Computed example of a mutant assay.
Amino acid sequence: MNRRTLFRSLAATLGLGTVGGTVAACVADRRNPYYQGPVSDHFDGTRFFNPNGAAPRGFRDLLRWRFGDPPAKWPDKVPLADPARPAARVEDMTVTMVGHASLLIQMQGVNILTDPVWSERASPLSFAGPKRVVAPGIPFDALPPIDHVLLSHNHYDHLDLDTLKRLKAVHDPHVVTPLGNDTILAPTGLRCRAMDWAEQARLGPLGVECVPSHHWSARGAGDRSMALWGGFLLRGAVGALLFIGDTGFDGGRPYRDLPGRSGPIRAALLPIGAYDPRWFMAEQHQNPDEAVQGLKLCGAAYGIGHHWGTIQLTNEAREAPARALELALARHRLAQDRFRALRPGEARAIPPI
Rank of each mutant, 00 (worst) to 15 (best):
R60A: 12
V175I: 15
D82Q: 03
R132D: 09
A122W: 04
L167H: 11
P86W: 08
I138S: 02
K77C: 12
F67Y: 14
K73D: 04
V149K: 02
A135H: 03
P178S: 11
P70W: 03
G189I: 11
M97G: 01
F59K: 15
L143G: 13
L164F: 09
G99N: 00
D162C: 02
S126L: 10
K131T: 14
M93H: 00
L159N: 06
M107K: 00
T183V: 14
P75S: 07
I146M: 06
V134W: 11
T114S: 08
L185N: 10
N154S: 13
A81W: 00
L143Q: 14
V110T: 15
H174F: 05
G189H: 03
S152N: 05
R60I: 05
A122T: 02
V149E: 05
D182M: 06
D172I: 05
W65R: 15
V175M: 14
P116M: 08
Q106E: 02
M97V: 06
T188W: 09
P178I: 12
P83F: 10
H153I: 05
A169L: 08
N154I: 08
A122D: 00
T163W: 02
R132N: 08
S123Q: 07
P136K: 11
A101K: 08
P173D: 14
P79H: 01
A169R: 12
R89Y: 02
R66M: 12
G99A: 04
R121P: 07
H171V: 12
D61Y: 13
L62H: 01
R57E: 13
F67N: 00
F59T: 15
R85V: 12
D147A: 13
T163K: 10
S126A: 14
M97K: 15
V170P: 01
T94C: 07
L159G: 03
K73Q: 11
L63H: 13
L179Y: 10
T163F: 00
G180H: 09
V134P: 07
R57F: 09
L185H: 00
F59E: 15
P79E: 07
P187T: 10
L150M: 12
Q108T: 14
H155A: 02
V134H: 07
P144L: 09
L143R: 11
V133G: 03
D182V: 08
E91Y: 04
F59W: 08
G129M: 00
F59P: 11
D160R: 03
A55T: 08
R66V: 14
